[in-house]
């Protein structure tokens, strides 16, 4: 399987805090890989390091075989990394449609933009209904759909999802995970960060367990879901 993303011995710091202590991770083409772990384990930091919002002090991030860890975020996006950040971070004073348009900022072909927009609206009909509404007026679930839709407008080679189910009602959590599976079926490579380990391991092919900045376990998602330690720590027994 072709590797889309590879992290080699990545060390990231926030000031003096050693947040990532030598992360090794890879995502192959067409895979859903999930990164699970407790609060503060470094899941979000891992994604931020990949998308260039923070730069590692040591180690390498390879995207399709090319080192990208020294590049600024806006250039990493250009190569095909779509990051749906923690807390959705949609633009509250832009309309739904403008949020999507800005997702396709790097695309100049009008027809292609319209095609992608139609695809997002097909995936999330709710967004089509609310296209003229300001992003900030959407409900939490709709905002999450918009955040994912906005990243899809980039037509990324890999989609980084940071806690897409956070703060959503159970029904919507299911919708979001179904969408993740559906996107993967359509060929998207996905790196999914989740606190909802049970759901994440259900939908993913492989998984990594992150603990205080280190990968403690890795393997096929089904095996991880059966692992006694994982069960005890993250799956509630």
């Amino acid at each position: 399987m072709k590797k889309v993303l590879e992290l080699k011995n990545v060390h990231t710091y926030y000031g003096h805090i050693h947040a990532l202590k030598g992360i090794d991770l890879e995502v192959g083409e067409g895979e859903i890989v999930t990164l699970i772990g407790a609060n503060g384990a470094g899941k979000t930091t891992t994604l931020r390091t990949i998308s260039g919002m923070i730069h590692p002090r040591e180690g390498e991030v390879l995207f399709e075989g090319v080192a990208v860890h020294h590049l600024p975020a806006h250039q990493i996006v250009k190569r095909g990394v779509g990051h749906v950040p923690e807390g959705r971070r949609i633009f509250p004073r832009l309309t739904v449609e403008e949020n999507l348009e800005i997702g396709a900022y790097l695309q100049n072909d009008r027809q292609e933009i319209e095609r992608r927009k139609a695809e997002v609206f097909e995936l999330f009909p709710r967004l089509a209904e609310r296209r003229r509404q300001l992003g900030g007026t959407l409900s939490g679930g709709e905002q999450q759909m918009l955040a994912i839709g906005r990243a899809l407008m980039q037509d990324p080679r890999i989609l980084l999802l940071d806690e897409p189910s956070m703060g959503l009602a159970p029904v919507l959590v299911d919708v979001i995970f179904e969408t993740v599976a559906e996107l993967n079926k359509r060929g998207k490579t996905i790196l999914l960060v989740e606190q909802n380990a049970l759901k994440a391991l259900e939908v993913a092919h492989r998984g990594y367990v992150l603990q205080t900045g280190e990968i403690t376990l890795a393997g096929p998602a089904k095996e991880l879901a059966q692992n006694e330690e994982v069960k005890k720590a993250y799956l509630g027994g």
Binding site: A73, K78, R89, F91, E101, G103, Y105, Q154
Partner: peptide, 17 residues
């Protein structure tokens, strides 16, 4: 739209390229 996006959230705007 890009100017407004940067004004609202520059960091996320950089994630849009």
């Amino acid at each position: 739209i890009a100017i407004r996006a940067v004004a609202q959230d520059a960091q996320t705007a950089s994630l849009m390229g």
